[in-house]
């Protein structure tokens, strides 16, 4: 039995590389999510692929390959067969901050992938403990000028979204609070609610329930427009802070060398999924921002990756942040 399989496998191996783009997909597609099941990127991936599977007529199976700030999974995805049957969900960290954080990174975010398209971004919100002696961003910035040394900033671990965006925030406002690391957002938020630490920056999906519940206060949201989930929270620009617009974007990538027709099919399916009412509703409930039609194209994603790498590298290097 085994011998037959092996022998035939060797013969069949020659035939499979033929042009299969027209019939694509003929079998389930694996999407690597480089984080544990249940995290924001995983949730976005599951919501988006649910509808994509129906468009493509084949199921997209989520494979969680967690580790090293998402770079383990993306490394594996980058090295996969470029046949369209292995794709991945990258995000701000893996395709923006990673080159600065991981000097030995085994892939180049801008060169080793065939971008499929932007899926959904979750904006960053600047939040502080309930008892913080300032009530808006301006007051906060003033406080930081005089008491910067005393302030503790929480983050969810080196390499996490809240860490990178937090460092960026500090560099924009030129403050040096004491950084306190937590393992994940949950414990960090808990100590923020308990008034143990003073402030942090994190994705809206994590902090919105606590803001709505009055357990913590939000100073600003780092997007050009306000979020329908938090209509009372001003944007950073409205609150008087220029130069801090960040979102933890998630985007689908295929390995470099994937046939363009296949990338096109996937990109169209993704775009169709984002136009679907149910998908939209679920993403918006999370506080997600759905990219416009022009932002969804592979070309736009390629540009985004390049600009993000260019933006994060100097900021993180200057702060001496590394995860290796």
């Amino acid at each position: 039995m085994k011998n037959i399989v092996l022998a035939l496998a060797a013969v069949a191996g020659l035939a499979t590389t033929g042009a299969q783009a027209q019939n694509y997909p003929t079998r389930p597609i694996t999407m690597i999510v480089p984080f544990a099941a249940g995290g924001p990127t995983d949730v976005v991936a599951r919501i988006v692929t649910d509808h994509m599977s129906r468009t493509l007529g084949q199921q997209i199976v989520i494979e969680n390959v967690a580790g090293a700030g998402g770079t383990t999974g993306i490394t594996r995805g980058a090295q996969a067969q470029p046949d369209g049957y292995t794709i991945m969900m990258g995000h701000m960290g893996t395709h923006g901050a990673a080159p600065a954080l991981y000097p030995n990174l085994k892939y180049d975010p801008a060169k080793d992938f065939a971008p499929i398209g932007l899926a959904a971004g979750t904006p960053i919100v600047i939040v502080a403990k309930k008892d913080f002696p300032a009530n808006d961003l301006k007051g906060f910035l003033d406080y930081m000028k005089t008491n910067g040394e005393k302030v503790n900033m929480a983050h969810a671990g080196v390499g996490s979204v809240s860490h990178s965006t937090g460092i960026f925030f500090n560099s924009v406002i030129k403050a040096k609070p004491t950084m306190v690391a937590y393992r994940g957002t949950g414990p960090a938020l808990n100590d923020l609610m308990a008034n143990t630490v003073d402030f942090m920056t994190d994705q809206i999906v994590n902090v919105a329930p606590q803001i709505q519940g009055g357990n913590i206060k939000a100073f600003a949201i780092a997007t050009p427009q306000r979020s329908p989930v938090l209509p009372n929270v001003p944007t950073t620009k409205e609150a008087g802070l220029e130069g801090y617009e960040v979102s933890a974007w998630n985007a689908a990538f295929a390995p470099k060398g994937t046939p363009p027709e296949i990338v096109k099919k996937l990109s169209d399916a993704l775009s169709k999924s984002l136009d679907d009412e149910t998908t939209k509703k679920r993403l918006l409930e999370l506080g997600g921002v759905i990219p416009s039609a022009t932002e969804r194209t592979p070309e736009a994603l390629q540009k985004l990756v390049e600009s993000e790498v260019a933006r994060w590298t100097p900021v993180l290097k200057a702060a001496g942040a590394t995860a290796e």
């Binding site: 544990a36 099941a37 249940g38 995290g39 994940g184 999906v205 329930p209 606590q210 519940g213 999370l286």
Partner: peptide
């Protein structure tokens, strides 16, 4: 009641809830 997952299993439950459109938190 807080929306804070105390361990890895609960973190997974949070993800499951969010996928179903319920974001755990004090308002649930």
């Amino acid at each position: 009641t807080l929306g804070i997952p105390p361990n890895a299993v609960m973190a997974l439950m949070v993800g499951a809830m969010t996928i179903h459109g319920i974001i755990p938190g004090p308002q649930v």
